[in-house]
Design a protein around this nucleic acid. Structure first.
Lengths: 257, 257
DNA sequence: TAAGAATGTGCAAGATCGTGCAGAAACTTT
DNA sequence: AAAGTTTCTGCACGATCTTGCACATTCTTA
C-alpha cells in the first residue's frame, strides 16, 4: 500500500461517509495509528478535511475554494493572529481593518466572547458568519477590489458614527520613526478616522512590514498602543521610547512582551 | 461516534426541531447524560443554543438557516444563474440581493462587461474581487449572519441614495398571486427599497421558492419584469397575465421564454 | 414543603495526540 | 552495483482530551 494511495482512499471514504475514524483506518490499512494521524494531518493541511479528536470530518462546505481553506488553516495557526486576538477582551467593540493578516486575526477571535466587530472588509464579515456571539457591522461604500476593502467617503462617514474600544489596523508599513503609513490617500484617510474613533490602537505586522515606510501617514508611533511582531530580530528602541507595548509572537507559545 | 460529530448532529437537530432534550440525546448517541450536558454547555458557550432545564433551545426562533440554504448543489443553480446573468447588459448598474442563488448569478456575470454592482451581501462583493471591469458598491450596516446580508436601517439609507437599472432580488417566496414575499420584516423593507430604486425587477427562483408565500410582502406580481425558473411544470397563467416574462432555464442550454 | 429530576464539579481511567528518535524503504547519485 | 540521501513508518513517552461516576446542589412539580 503506497502512501499516496492511502491518502486517496482516505479522501474517498471521507467524501462518501463524511467522516473517518483514525483507529478504523489503522486497522483497515494495516498501519499504525501514528501513520494515520500523519495522513490526516497532511490532508487537513491541504484543506481536504478537518481534524477532530478521534479522526477527521469533511470541512464545512460553507464558502470558498480549496485554496481559501488552505489559507484558513494556516491563518488559524498564525501565531501573529492569535497574539492579536488575545488582546481582545470580552464585551469589547473592535474595528478590524482589511488585509490578510487581519482576516487571520478575525478567524482567531475567541468564539465564546461576546464582541461587536466593525469592519470595512466584506471577507471578514463573511468569515464571522458562524459566530452567533458576535455582532458584525459592515462599513460599506465603494469596494476596492485589489485591497478587498470598502474605502471611499461612504465608509469614512459610517466609521465616524461609531466608537470602538480597539482598532486592529492593517498596515502597509510601520516604522519606529515614521509611524504607521499607507499606500493610498483614501485608505489612509479611512484609517485615520478609525484611529480617532477608537481608544486602543493595535498593529499586527508581519516581518516585511516592519521598517517599511509608505507615502501616506496614518498615525504617529506614539499613538500605537500594542505592536505585535513575528519572532526575529528588530530594533525596538524607538517603540519602547514611545510607550508602545511590543509583543513578540512565538510559534505556538504565548507572546512575550 | 466522534465528539465533534455529535456536536454537529446536535446542532442539526436543534435547527430542525428548535429544541433538544438531554435524555433523548443521551439515548440516541449512546453516551451518558453528563456528556450531553457538557456538549450543550459547549454549544451554549459558543452561542449556538440556550440552555434550559432538561435540554436546550435555539437562541432566537429563526436561526441557522444559512447552512441549509448553502447546502444546495451548485450545478442546479448555475443554469438558473446563467439565465439571470444573460439579462444583464453592458454598462448597466445592478442591485444584487443576498442569497446563494444570487451569489451564483454574480459569479455568472460576464467579466468582459462593464458593470456597476451594488450588493448588501459581503460574500458577493468578495466574489467579484477579480473582475476589474466591475465597480462594486457595498451596502453596509448591521450584518445578519444567518442570511449573509447587511440589513437594517443603514443599508436602507444607503440603498435610497442609488438608482439601478436592474434589481436581481433574492426571494424567500414567489407566488403568482401573492407576489414576492420575505421571511423577515427588516429584510422585506430593504428589498422594497431596492425595488423602488431600480427600473427592472428580476426574480430567479429555484423550484422550492415557487408558489411559496412568506409572511412579509415585498412586491406585487405585476412589478416583476423577469421571472427565471428551473425546468419543470408550473402554472404560468397568472404571471403571464401580469406581464411577467417567464424564462425557463434548461440544464446547460439557453432559456426558452 | 417534599420528592424526584436535572445540574455542576471534582476526579480518575482510558483514549488520543504530538514529538523526538531510530530503523526500514525508496530514491538518487556516483 | 554501492553509497548516500530522503521519505516513510513504528515506537516510546509525556501531555491533552474525553467520558462516566460520585456527590452535593439547584430546579421543577406535585
Amino acid at each position: 500500500m503506497l502512501t499516496e494511495e492511502r491518502l486517496d482512499r482516505i479522501r474517498e471514504q471521507l467524501t462518501i461517509r463524511g467522516k473517518v475514524v483514525a483507529s478504523e483506518l489503522a486497522t483497515q490499512f494495516d498501519v499504525s495509528e501514528d501513520t494515520v494521524r500523519r495522513d490526516l494531518r497532511e490532508l487537513a493541511k491541504l484543506g481536504f478535511c478537518r481534524r477532530v479528536y478521534g479522526g477527521a470530518l469533511l470541512p464545512t462546505p460553507d464558502f470558498g475554494t480549496l485554496a481559501a481553506r488552505t489559507a484558513l488553516d494556516k491563518d488559524r495557526k498564525s501565531s501573529l493572529a492569535r497574539a492579536a486576538a488575545r488582546l481582545v477582551e470580552d464585551g469589547q467593540t473592535v474595528f478590524i481593518d482589511a488585509g490578510s493578516t487581519n482576516l487571520a486575526v478575525a478567524n482567531a477571535l475567541d468564539p465564546s466572547q461576546t464582541l461587536t466587530i466593525i469592519t470595512n472588509a466584506p471577507v471578514i464579515a463573511t468569515a464571522l458568519s458562524d459566530r452567533p456571539n458576535f455582532t458584525v457591522i459592515v462599513l460599506g461604500g465603494l469596494y476596492d477590489q485589489a485591497k478587498g476593502a470598502c474605502l471611499g467617503p461612504q465608509a469614512i462617514r459610517e466609521a465616524m458614527q461609531v466608537y470602538a474600544d480597539m482598532f486592529i489596523i492593517g498596515v502597509c508599513g510601520v516604522d519606529s520613526i515614521a509611524g504607521v503609513t499607507a499606500l493610498d490617500p483614501g485608505e489612509a484617510e479611512l484609517k485615520r478616522t478609525m484611529v480617532n474613533q477608537s481608544s486602543i490602537l493595535v498593529v499586527a505586522a508581519t516581518a516585511e512590514k516592519l521598517g517599511t515606510v509608505a507615502p501616506f501617514k496614518v498615525a504617529d508611533t506614539s499613538m500605537i498602543d500594542h505592536l505585535i511582531v513575528e519572532d526575529g530580530e528588530f530594533d525596538r528602541g524607538d517603540f519602547a521610547r514611545c510607550d508602545v507595548q511590543v509583543h513578540v509572537a512565538l510559534d505556538g507559545g504565548s507572546p512575550s512582551t
